[in-house]
């Protein structure tokens, strides 16, 4: 304590001598406190926001209107497209159409240029890792063979995680590497992308899975 007091003694004397300095320091301290609370609570807010969105999307996903849009291939950006379930990491999230910043507030979005879920080719889904419900927070913990289920308004299908990293089921790539979401006609796969490391957008982490089974609802 005495050491601390001695190091800041000049500042303390200055504060004692100047009322305006005390008032300014008080205001700055209060501002910093407010900003700190905001920054620290931001992730909590986004999770809350995503949770509200998911509740709404869950209702819309089950509606006949959404099924009609899906069949017609006219699901708009931000509307529910599929439900992704990854039992190994406790994921159960409605995936919306689109990967723009607005659409991804729901937590996970489908790349519009990729095939629809359960169809032939490379289906690609991007998901948040630290905010907005963080559905893909633990995709680095997936192992080869883990099941990924996609449910659509007209059926469902199951994928199995495959080995793509040197020693892991995931791979770290540059943010500009779009090859991972290129279509693969004749080879039905699922690619999940997210940011890496957690809390950073410096790189991307991807996991891929192969289609193993498919069920389509009767018309």
């Amino acid at each position: 304590m005495s050491t601390n007091l001695s190091s800041i003694q000049p500042v303390v004397r200055f504060l004692r001598a100047n009322r305006w300095a005390r008032a300014t320091l008080s205001a700055v301290s209060l501002g910093l406190l407010v900003a700190a609370v905001g920054m620290l609570s931001y992730p909590l807010y986004t999770n809350y926001d995503a949770d509200r969105r998911q509740s709404r999307l869950d209702r819309e996903f089950a509606s006949p209107a959404n099924r009609d849009e899906y069949v017609a291939g006219s699901v708009a950006e931000g509307d529910p497209l599929t439900r992704i379930k990854i039992p190994a990491i406790d994921v159960d999230t409605i995936v919306v159409e689109g990967t723009g910043a607005s659409a991804l507030k729901a937590g996970a979005g489908h790349y519009p240029t990729s095939p629809l879920p359960c169809e032939d080719g490379n289906v690609a889904i991007a998901g948040h890792r630290t905010t907005y419900g963080k559905p893909f927070a633990n995709i680095d913990r997936l192992a080869v063979g883990d099941e990924v289920i996609l449910q659509t308004p007209i059926g469902s299908c199951s994928y199995e995680v495959v080995h793509i990293g040197p020693d892991t089921a995931y791979k770290i790539i540059a943010p500009t590497d779009f090859s991972v979401v290129e279509n693969t006609p004749g080879d039905p796969t699922l690619t999940l992308t997210s940011c890496h490391p957690k809390g950073s957008a410096r790189q991307r982490i991807i996991v891929q899975a192969k289609l193993v089974s498919q069920q389509t609802e009767a018309a």
Partner: peptide, 21 residues
């Protein structure tokens, strides 16, 4: 590829601001 990660600097800034306050 889509940004699906928060800014790592935010929590640090928040902590720094709290400490300064």
């Amino acid at each position: 590829l889509p940004r699906t990660g928060g800014l790592a600097v935010l929590p640090m800034l928040g902590g720094t601001g709290l400490a300064a306050a």
